[in-house]
Computed example of a mutant assay.
Amino acid sequence: MNIDAQHVAQGGHIIPFLSLNGKRALITSGTRGAGAATVALFRELGAQVLTTARTQPADFPDSLFVAADLASPQGCAALAAAVRERMGDVDIIVHMLGGSAAPAGGFEALSDEVWGGELDLNLMPAVRLDRELVPGMVSRGKGVVIHVTSIQRQLPLPEATTAYAAAKAALSTYSKCLSKQVSPQGVRVVRVSPGWIETEASLHLAARLAAEHGGDVEDGKRMIMQSLGGIPIGRPSKPEEVASLIAFLASDRAGTITGTEYVIDGGTVPTV
């Protein structure tokens, strides 16, 4: 009997290989890039999803969205309250939020304010939201927390990503500590570490670099890959590929995976 790759046979019936049916999921920063791809895939797999950003895109449904600035304690508290109001409890938290506004120029260019901003964006939202929502998972004896880190924690670019990389490294260490504390109570904590993802923003960067050097977008993409030391697979990850890894790790298929990190970078990190 031929069985579609998306399904497996069980008890004489064909069931989906991967399902999030009935799961309640909070996915931060889910309106663009890999975050939006993760929201779309979770919904396709049957999850009830709530996401957030500072502003709501015009075409984004109200039922899926809470406006919040997660770089502030007040924004995190407001989002946690909205989760409880709309979903009661949450089964899955995916911390997609991250980014950098730090100037280039190495460590000397990074003021206390820049350092604080990088930590407030890349570390503290996960800390604050977990503190609000993970105790409910512990009390029910089940749940999944996924922290999206970055290969920059292992492969920082000193001229451009020192503060961002350090903040993501802190997130990774925090995630490991959390997993050791709550995994015995049935709550899995996993890290996903992407390399370069081909998002709309990254393509704009490639186009800008290309324009500065008299090339096209493909030339700009090659420049970005070269700045990372090369990507052996020859291309960046697609947002949908990152979403697929996150969905698997959030699902019951990954029921004994906790406390570890999954890198999705096309082979960029050159070490074991």
Rank of each mutant, 00 (worst) to 15 (best):
V148K: 09
A82W: 01
G88P: 12
A102T: 10
E118H: 07
A101R: 13
Q152M: 15
R131I: 01
A166H: 05
A82P: 05
K142G: 11
A81C: 04
E113G: 13
V90C: 06
H147T: 02
P156R: 01
A163W: 12
G136F: 12
V83W: 12
H95E: 06
V83S: 13
D130F: 05
A160P: 04
N122C: 13
L119E: 00
S172H: 15
P135H: 09
K168V: 06
A104M: 09
R128W: 03
M87I: 07
A81I: 00
P158N: 09
V90R: 00
A163E: 12
V144S: 10
P135W: 08
V134Y: 10
I146L: 15
H95R: 05
E159L: 03
A163I: 13
A109K: 02
R86L: 04
T162F: 14
L119H: 00
Y164T: 02
L119P: 03
A169R: 09
E108C: 13
A165K: 05
A169G: 15
A165P: 11
K168M: 08
D91N: 08
G143M: 12
D112Y: 09
Y174F: 11
F107N: 11
T149H: 00
R86F: 06
R153F: 09
V134H: 11
L110C: 05
E85N: 13
E118K: 04
T149K: 01
T161A: 09
L129G: 01
L133R: 00
A102P: 10
D130N: 15
V94E: 03
Q154V: 10
R131A: 08
P103M: 14
G136E: 12
I146W: 07
E113V: 15
E159I: 03
A163D: 12
P103F: 15
S150C: 11
V148M: 13
M137N: 04
F107G: 07
E118G: 06
G116C: 12
A109I: 04
M96Q: 12
V138C: 14
A169Q: 06
E85Q: 15
G106V: 03
P156H: 03
I92R: 05
Q152D: 14
S100Y: 07
G136V: 11
A160H: 04
V144L: 10
H147W: 07
E108F: 13
L119Y: 08
R128L: 04
V148D: 09
H147G: 01
S172A: 15
R131W: 01
V127S: 02
R140F: 08
D89M: 03
K142Q: 13
A82C: 06
D120S: 12
G117Y: 03
A167H: 04
T149R: 01
E159M: 05
L133T: 01
G117F: 00
S150E: 07
N122W: 12
P156D: 00
V134F: 11
A166V: 03
A102N: 09
R128N: 07
W115F: 11
G98Y: 02
